[in-house]
């Protein structure tokens, strides 16, 4: 009995003190950690792909006349990373931020306004394009495209 007690004590003492200095020293974060998602608002086209795949439906999209307001309630986020997978513009990426503790729930709400060009006829939004952007050939269909000498994709 005493031998096993001593063995137990040796196991305990061999390890030494392993406590990490965490709150006073930065934590180790592995590569590819799925932390708080960050949204690059300048890339977002307001397609709503993230809203449709999100398991906790935390993305709320409201279309207003000249803009789309996207509100994300990150207190519900389960950090699955689905939104980052499906985003067609790679606007969402999982950051390494996990220190999301807060005393105010509103700290976790992210509101984005995307200003969109609106169709003058129906009044609905579409993503605006500046003259510097390359033309989107996909929207050109049929004979007109062929006349321009561009292969349809």
């Amino acid at each position: 009995m005493f031998r096993s007690k001593i063995k137990e004590a040796i196991i305990c003492l061999e390890a030494g003190r392993v406590t990490l200095a965490y709150p006073f020293a930065p934590a180790f974060i592995p590569k590819g950690f799925r932390g708080l998602p960050s949204v690059d608002i300048n890339r977002c086209v307001g397609c709503g792909g993230c809203a449709s795949v999100c398991p906790s439906s935390l993305v709320e999209i409201v279309d207003e006349p000249d803009r789309t307001t996207i509100t994300r309630y990150f207190e519900r986020c389960i950090y699955c990373g689905r939104c980052a997978d499906v985003c067609p513009e790679m606007a969402i990426e999982m950051t390494e931020r996990f220190e999301t503790a807060t005393n105010d729930i509103r700290d976790l709400h992210v509101v984005h306004h995307i200003y969109m060009a609106t169709c003058s006829r129906c009044g609905r939004c579409f993503s605006s394009q500046t003259p510097l952007d390359p033309p989107d050939y996909r929207s050109f269909k049929g004979t007109r495209l062929n006349r321009l000498g561009v292969e349809s994709t």
Partner: peptide, 15 residues
């Protein structure tokens, strides 16, 4: 290794 040690240690623990 550690788990073997634990198994060894608690195998003789009468309490």
């Amino acid at each position: 290794q550690q788990w073997k040690k634990v198994l060894d240690a608690i195998a003789g623990d009468t309490t």
